[in-house]
Amino acid sequence: MAADGEEQDQQTEWNQEGYQWLRRMQSRLEDVLLGKPDTVRLAMTALLAGGHLLLEDVPGVGKTVLARAFAKAVGGQFGRIQFTSDLQPADVTGGSVWDNVQRDFVYRPGPVMNHVVLADELNRTTPRTQSALLEAMEERSVTVDGTTRLLPEPFMLIATQNPLRDEGTFPLPEAQLDRFMMRLSIGYPAAADEIRMLEHRSSTGTIGSIKSLMSPEQWLELQRQAQQVHVDRSLLAYVVDIAAATRTAPQLSLGASPRASRDWVRAAQAAACMEGRGYAVPDDFKGTAVPVLSHRLVMKPQHEANGWEQASILEQMIQEFPLPRKMPTGTWRVQ
């Protein structure tokens, strides 16, 4: 058995290698989604934390491009579901079909049985079909005809949706929104970045140039390592205080769930990994608060009509609850 010092050196060396993988992937994705480094970093943070990602924005700003680029970079099996109003749950999960050779019904996997699944325009299908993803998102399995089948590991769902004011959209239920670790918006690019994008797309630098940087097993190991990042107890108490405050806020009819608290901690741990640290700091929680929590909060109609927004309420709470400044000791940082 290795001595404690040797184990610590080995762990530090592995983390340095993982950090370099993350840096390379972030650089590749930023080459595809030009001018949006913060969006790329947060998207990677959510997926590194083992969560699912919801990209909400107007059409044509790069939601699908980001999802496809990440799937190519991480390798593994990729499935895409184009959600429409006539899509059925079996089109997502798969179903039993008659096999003339076996003279029996056999299961035919649906597109959800992949490592990375792009649920494109999720809110264009009916709530019945949307709910087909609930078990997959939380339990990493699907149940068809009474038989439960595990999804491949790692399993990551990247969903896109258009703004709810668009014609032909259905709002996602709160139970499904709560299963997304983060909701992000991309926004329009700056003029200089849009010019670069036009030059980029007219040359050889397309999404097809993205190559796999690691195997799904390597990404799964990175996810496991992210969950080992040290979080000081004072930061956990801070998470609980903010979650409790959302549940009693007069502007909100629904606050953050315990799942939201768990996801916030995991997102902060992954954010620390993205910075090359084996310990979380207050800024990791501050930087992930709005993407992780805001889409889970439900405004009361009267306050929403008065212009209140979930993000502004969270930011106000962060101002009211000072972040702890205590730092852990005995943890590594990549130089």
Rank of each mutant, 00 (worst) to 15 (best):
D38N: 15
V32T: 00
G35C: 11
R23T: 01
G18V: 04
E17G: 06
P37M: 03
G18T: 00
A46S: 07
Y19N: 12
Q20D: 11
Y19M: 00
Q26D: 13
G18C: 12
Y19S: 13
Q16C: 14
M44A: 05
D38R: 15
L29D: 10
R28K: 14
P37A: 06
P37F: 02
G18I: 09
Q20N: 12
M25L: 15
Q20E: 14
M44K: 02
L34K: 07
L33N: 06
Q20V: 00
R23G: 08
Q20C: 09
G35I: 04
L33W: 12
G35N: 04
W21H: 14
L47A: 07
M44E: 03
R24A: 14
R41I: 12
L22V: 07
Q16L: 15
V32Q: 06
D38S: 13
Y19P: 01
R41V: 04
G35M: 07
K36T: 01
R28M: 11
Q20T: 10
L33K: 11
R24N: 13
V40I: 08
L34R: 05
L33E: 08
A43I: 01
L22T: 07
Q20M: 07
A46W: 11
L34F: 02
V40Y: 03
S27I: 05
L22K: 03
E30T: 06
L34E: 04
R24Y: 13
R24Q: 11
Y19G: 04
R24C: 07
D38K: 15
Q20K: 13
L29C: 06
L29H: 04
Q26L: 05
L29R: 11
L29E: 09
A46K: 02
D31F: 13
R28S: 11
A43R: 03
R23Q: 14
V32P: 01
E30N: 12
V32A: 10
G18W: 04
R28Q: 14
M25S: 07
L22A: 05
L33Y: 05
Q26E: 15
Q16A: 15
R28Y: 05
T45F: 00
L47F: 03
R23W: 05
M44W: 07
G35P: 09
A46H: 00
R24L: 13
L47K: 09
Y19K: 12
L42E: 08
K36P: 03
R41P: 08
T39P: 09
W21G: 02
L22D: 06
L29I: 01
L42Q: 11
Q26C: 02
L47W: 05
P37S: 12
T45Q: 08
T45L: 02
Q16N: 10
L42D: 01
T45W: 01
L22I: 06
R24S: 15
L42G: 00
E17D: 15
R41T: 13
L42T: 09
R41D: 08
Q20R: 14
L42W: 01
D31E: 15
T39W: 11
L29V: 09
A46T: 02
R41E: 02
M25W: 08
V40F: 07
T45D: 11
L22R: 03
M25P: 05
L47I: 07
L42R: 11
L29S: 00
T45H: 00
E17A: 10
A43V: 11
R28E: 14
